[in-house]
């Protein structure tokens, strides 16, 4: 050890706090790790930036009022994306209506009511695994369950329900986690005053978990808007130049439309593809930004 004690009046006050070789080593290590972690973050961020940049440069010029609000034309090699945009909104809305009540209710049950036993733990594990199921598997399930068995045919309803099943674990996990982030002390305070579980949930737990729940919901929206596989066989049409009038209609959708014009329409100009991709990604980013903003807004109001 180079650490020396009380070295008298010779070296004086200034040396007492001088860096030792050990301090120097610690500083070097600290710098190294900081650089390492920073680099990893960069590796993560750069591709996202490049993708968005390329989309912006190549797709930007395509975006116009005309592009957003008109129908595809000339065998989908020209025109706009309006029916796909509207279709995506239908899919997102209907799947939210299906997944949010079920998901939030299930999460409340699992977090607030279910006893901590092997069955509950098994269900939680199953939900986490469900989140990892590839979307094409959900698609096949959707065809079997909703298109054929339930008799909905290829329709917005079948596609939305398939999407709902896919995003359900996201909603459940996000909700359960935000419920569990509400301090136990609040619940105990309520129970000790004679409140039932439900009174406690309604007056204290839910209001304080709402920001996390909404975040989960919005994340599931962006996932829903971006998925192709689950809707491909269940309700999204290759080309359907009408706006849907009910949930039993087929519909076009953004993700599907992008897939189609990129792979199945020979003469589609690149500009059209990049424009569609840019619109989709902007939609998703906007929703994520809204969720982040909303969460920090609600956090700011919380005092614990």
């Amino acid at each position: 050890m180079t650490y020396s004690e009380g070295d008298g009046g010779v070296s004086g006050q200034s040396l007492m706090f001088a860096a030792t070789p050990l301090n120097m080593r610690n500083h070097r290590l600290q710098w190294l790790f900081r650089a390492l972690f920073g680099l990893m973050t960069l590796i993560l961020v750069v591709p996202v930036g490049i993708i968005f940049g390329v989309l912006l440069v190549r797709g930007g010029p395509a975006i116009s009022f005309e592009f957003l609000f008109s129908y595809p034309s000339d065998g989908m090699t020209a025109g706009g994306i309006w029916p796909a945009l509207v279709g995506t909104m239908w899919l997102v809305a209907v799947s939210l209506i299906a997944s949010v009540p079920v998901g939030v209710a299930a999460a409340i049950y699992l977090s607030e009511y279910a006893p901590d036993n092997w069955l509950t733990r098994g269900i939680n594990l199953a939900i986490i695994n469900l989140a990892g199921v590839p979307s094409i598997v959900h698609a096949l399930f959707g065809v079997g369950a909703f298109v054929i068995f339930a008799g909905f045919g290829t329709s917005i309803l079948a596609a939305s329900l398939t999407l709902a099943v896919m995003t359900l674990p996201l909603v459940i996990v996000a909700t359960r986690e935000s419920l569990q982030a509400v301090p136990m002390a609040f619940r105990e305070a309520c129970w000790n005053m004679g409140a039932t579980r439900w009174q406690t949930i309604r007056t204290v737990v839910l209001p304080n978990a709402i920001s996390g729940i909404l975040t989960g919901v919005i994340l599931s929206v962006s996932r829903t808007a971006g998925e192709t596989a689950p809707i491909m066989f269940t309700g999204a049409a290759f080309f359907f130049p009408f706006l849907p009038s009910s949930v039993f209609d087929q519909t076009m959708a953004m993700a599907m439309h992008l897939f189609v014009i990129s792979t199945a329409v020979p003469g589609a100009p690149d500009e059209l593809k990049y424009g569609t991709a840019l619109t989709l990604i902007t939609l998703v980013l906007l929703m994520n930004a809204a969720s982040i903003w909303f969460r920090s807004y609600l956090r700011g109001k919380k005092k614990w």
């Binding site: 609040f186 309520c190 005053m193 919380k302």
Partner: peptide, 18 residues
């Protein structure tokens, strides 16, 4: 619920509701 109404509890860490 009635029992806990008549028998109140105060905790170690103050736990006012939010």
């Amino acid at each position: 619920s009635q029992l806990r109404r008549h028998v109140g509890m105060v905790f170690q860490r103050p736990n006012p509701l939010p």
